[in-house]
Design a protein around this nucleic acid. Structure first.
Length: 247
DNA sequence: AAAACCTCCAACCGCCAAGCG
DNA sequence: TCGCTTGGCGGTTGGAGGTTT
């Protein structure tokens, strides 16, 4: 079986026709999302499963928001990107109606160059008054039942207590055990933490500097990654530590 | 008017992790 | 434990349409 949709010469590629869209839409409406390997057969489409899935997710799915991003969306996107990096699906998950592809495209065409310019402007000016600290790059990228989320926490993790040094209103404490890690409650807690973190971070930045790319925000230390790459995580260390724990 | 250049975004590609037998 | 299949992700590309020369 092909992983890359390119073993069969008869499979169609390129732009989708209105007829193909209709067939795919009808199929997903009848059978539901998922089982993408069956979709081409069920829909009578000469497309590979990946192509069908992508077309549905990025274009045909109901409630997809079309048109340009408004200021609030861009603002949120910038903040989320600072926190999450190029994790487009996670960012899109917090922008209702937007797909990961939309977010990625918008970032690459509008924001990447702007951000680059901002950084260069910073570099040209004062040679960064920002404190340079070392941070371990958050990884891996997915949360799963089998994944060790806390490589720096001992494997014998029955009720390891992990706390952040941040003592504001956010509850940063997690009791970690294998059952907890795999439970929906744990995922809820992560989502809850992100909710609060974004709200909190948003207030903090608004209070201090208003809307900007965050690069010049007072009180936010720049962070240099251990791999030497330029970091997008110019955040207070408390959040960095927590994100490292979360991912 | 048309050729050259630029921008944007839909779609493809390659890779990875989970699930299953 | 291993190999295969599937779903999902981020990076990249190609072409359509717009703008400039």
């Amino acid at each position: 079986m092909s992983q890359n949709c390119n073993t069969s010469l008869v499979l169609r590629k390129g732009a989708w026709t209105a007829e193909e869209d209709m067939l795919l839409k009808n199929c997903v409406e009848n059978f539901g999302e998922g089982k993408w390997h069956l979709v081409p057969l069920r829909a009578g489409l000469n497309r590979c499963r990946k192509s069908c899935r992508l077309r549905w997710l990025n274009y045909l799915r109901p409630n997809i928001k079309r048109g340009g991003f408004d200021k609030d969306e861009v603002d949120l996107m910038l903040r989320l990107h600072k926190l999450l990096g190029n994790r487009w699906s996670l960012i899109a998950g917090r922008l209702p109606g937007r797909t990961a592809n939309d977010v990625k495209n918008y970032w690459n065409t509008h924001l990447r160059s702007r951000l680059k310019q901002e950084k260069e402007k910073l570099k040209d000016g004062e040679q960064s008054e920002h404190t340079m600290v070392t941070v371990i790059k958050p990884q891996p990228h997915t949360i799963s039942k089998t994944l060790n989320l806390y490589p720096h926490v001992t494997p014998n993790y029955t009720h390891n207590l992990i706390t952040s040094s941040n003592n504001d209103s956010i509850d940063n404490t997690f009791n970690i055990s294998p059952n907890v890690v795999s439970s929906p409650t744990f995922v809820d807690k992560i989502n809850g933490y992100l909710e609060e973190l974004f709200d909190n971070q948003e207030k903090k930045i608004d209070d201090e500097v208003g809307w900007s790319f965050g690069l010049e925000a007072e009180g936010l230390d720049s962070v240099k990654q251990v791999d030497g790459q330029n970091s997008v995580f110019d955040l207070p260390m408390d959040e960095i530590v927590m994100l490292d724990l979360l991912y």
